[in-house]
Design a protein around this nucleic acid. Structure first.
Length: 574
RNA sequence: GCGCCUGUAGUGAAGGGGUUAUCACAAGAGGUUUCCAACCUCUUGUCCCGGGUUCAAAUCCCGGCGGGCGCACCA
């Protein structure tokens, strides 16, 4: 068993047994698109269901579902249109392509803000050499948009849109409704699972970098002044995990530490982020990822996404090395504020009630319409609203007042009345902060399969067992009639239909080949239990149940078996 | 997007300008006193696509598509 080939054996098993295939293969295939086959689709669904259940089981998080087609304006506000329009410059000599803003690093304060022409002129005036061949001959910078563009509306004049690059925007769009659903009380969250699209330049590594992929994202809305998680994490969070903190931060380096201690030591700065790191670890282990092959890595300030103020990657180790499978980011108020600004809505806020009402007395200037009107005529309305909009202590008259259009007017004492307002303020509006764990489902499934794939040398042959956790196995059990005749076939079939009728239970009947071969087939795709119908079954109604991972067998009556299948705990029979 | 390597049944491989393309495993039918990949008989199924060279192309050449690796990219 040469180890270098394990990846090949795993991927060919996945094709052979119907887990994952390249898509559209009879037309030559498309890089970066994959199909889940009859076995893989069930595994995927179970991983997703387990994920939803993991986050929604405490009542503070609900599930939503949004369109994948997203109007351009949403993605302009979120920053994706700008961010995804990175410019690329191609070297005329060696054809290498580089991000234009990277080439002029340090030569401009904000390279992101430049258009193609500006980038080109900086590149040429600085005579920037190609990092590959040193020649300073560059083609014009061209925008490289990694989103899939589309148009809403079949005829001309349609609205510009993109396939969503993340599901998160759906949760932000639904914030007002979530806020109402949760009775206007933070914290609360929403999850969404579904497809995301990124038109990768060069998809690689099988299902690791896809162009259309399954994501599962949680947006958790909190009051930044009262972040949940402060009071300590619950008992599961004492697990020692590997954490690699920001190399540019205060305590750089690798730590083997519990997440609770990492929070106490200031390695993780935000209590809610810490809590989600812990619950992410818990989820991954729950579906069968090896806890020893999980680590958390903090983003350096320089690699941070445009929207994030703090970000941890959860990386899982497998055949491709350490792969980022989950990103946990503190997106702060970036998205909600930005959508508020672009859309003009005021619904993206939350109310923070003061513990006791605050007495406020302040002086305000009230415009005197009868004086302002005749003096400023058409501009009077604008002047009046500018006066009302003055903040802080009113200036003494006369004073200069700036208007929206940039002009200035002089305000004299006759134009305004000084009023004293007194009252109680019971609270204030603020924009919630958002903590976002974002899961790459396909990458997680890959690692679940990788970690479950075990090859034991039985005799000279490699014997493959997919030691999947029962939560994510493609079939809950296989029914195997020892002989496909003499009544065993009928008994097996009636058992099959009885078990199939149990809600949510997947069963597979296999009656071809030797019994050993059928066990092997079931083991290879991770079926945890094999139920064999034999001669004794015909006499006394008992069957044998075999455990996939240790081949242990017991004999039980079918009634008892069925009741344990219904309650989901076959293992307690052993 | 560039460079190197590469593409043969479901999977893994062998071969290769010339009759009907080979093998193993898998799959299907049947047989078999089959509880850990047993055996026997039969069966199905393959040269990625397009163009070129040639009397003849799965084989050589070019292009495309896919895969692997490296460079670049990966919010």
């Amino acid at each position: 068993m040469p180890e270098s080939r394990r990846l090949d054996r795993l991927t060919s098993m996945m094709r052979r047994r119907g887990i994952v295939f390249p898509s559209f293969e009879i037309y030559g295939g498309v890089a970066g698109l994959v199909d889940y086959g009859p076995v893989g689709a069930t595994i995927k669904r179970k991983v997703v269901e387990c994920w939803i259940d993991h986050w929604t089981s405490e009542g503070d998080i609900v599930e939503i579902d949004s369109p994948t087609i997203t109007p351009k304006s949403v993605l302009v506000a979120s920053g994706h249109v700008g961010e995804f329009n990175d410019y690329m410059s191609e070297c005329r000599t060696c054809d290498s392509a580089f991000r234009s803003d990277h080439l002029i690093e340090g030569m401009h304060e904000n390279p992101d803000s430049l258009d193609g022409g500006e980038l080109d002129s900086i590149i040429s005036s600085n005579n920037i050499p190609c990092p590959n061949c040193d020649d300073p001959e560059w083609a014009e910078a061209r925008p490289m948009n990694l989103m899939f563009p589309t148009t809403i509306g079949a005829m001309g004049g349609g609205r510009e849109a993109y396939m969503r690059p993340e599901t998160a925007q759906g949760m932000f769009m639904l914030y007002p409704s979530l806020y109402r659903h949760f009775k206007q009380k933070l914290p609360f969250g929403a999850v969404q699972t579904g497809r995301g699209y990124r038109n990768e330049i060069s998809p690689r590594q099988g299902m690791i970098r896809l162009r259309e992929f399954n994501m599962a994202e949680l947006e958790y809305f909190i009051d930044p002044e009262n972040p949940p998680g402060k009071s300590g994490l619950d008992q599961t969070h004492g697990e020692i995990v590997e954490m690699i903190s920001d190399p540019e931060g205060e305590s750089p380096g690798n730590h083997r530490i519990s997440i609770q201690s990492a929070l106490n030591d200031g390695i993780v700065k935000h209590p809610t982020v810490a809590s989600f790191l812990a619950r992410t670890y818990e989820f991954l282990v729950k579906i069968g990822i090896d806890g020893e092959r999980i680590r958390f890595r903090q983003h350096a300030g320089s690699e941070m996404a445009h929207y994030a103020s703090d970000c941890w990657d959860c990386e899982i180790h497998g055949e491709y090395g350490w792969i980022e499978c989950v990103g946990i980011a503190n997106r702060t108020c970036h998205d909600l504020e930005s959508h508020e600004a672009y859309s003009g809505t005021n619904l993206l806020r939350a109310w923070r009630q003061f513990e006791s009402p605050r007495k406020v007395s302040k002086e305000v200037l009230s415009p005197n319409g009868s004086v302002i009107g005749p003096i400023f005529r058409q501009k009077a309305g604008e002047v009046a609203s500018a006066i009302s909009g003055l903040e802080g202590t009113p200036p003494p008259t006369p004073f200069k007042l700036a208007l929206e259009d940039g002009s200035e007017v002089e305000i004299t004492s006759e134009m305004v009345t000084l009023k004293k307002e007194e009252g109680n303020v019971h609270g204030e509006w603020f924009t919630p902060h958002v903590i976002e764990p974002a899961f790459g489902i396909d990458r997680i499934i890959w690692h679940v399969l990788d970690h479950a794939f075990t090859e034991d040398g039985k005799d000279s042959e490699d014997y493959v067992t997919l030691r999947l956790n029962e939560r994510v196995c493609p079939y809950d059990l296989s029914i195997l009639p020892l002989f496909d005749k003499d009544g065993m076939d009928e008994l097996a079939n009636s058992l099959l239909s009885e078990i199939l009728s149990i809600r949510g239970v997947q069963v597979n009947l296999d009656s071809t080949g030797s019994i050993g071969k059928r066990y092997a087939r079931a083991d290879e795709i991770g079926v945890p239990w094999a139920v064999t119908v034999d001669h004794s079954s015909l006499v006394d109604g008992t069957v044998t149940i075999r455990n996939r991972d240790n081949q242990q067998q017991i004999r039980v009556g079918t009634e008892k078996l069925i009741s344990h299948i219904e309650s989901g705990d076959i293992s307690s029979l052993f």
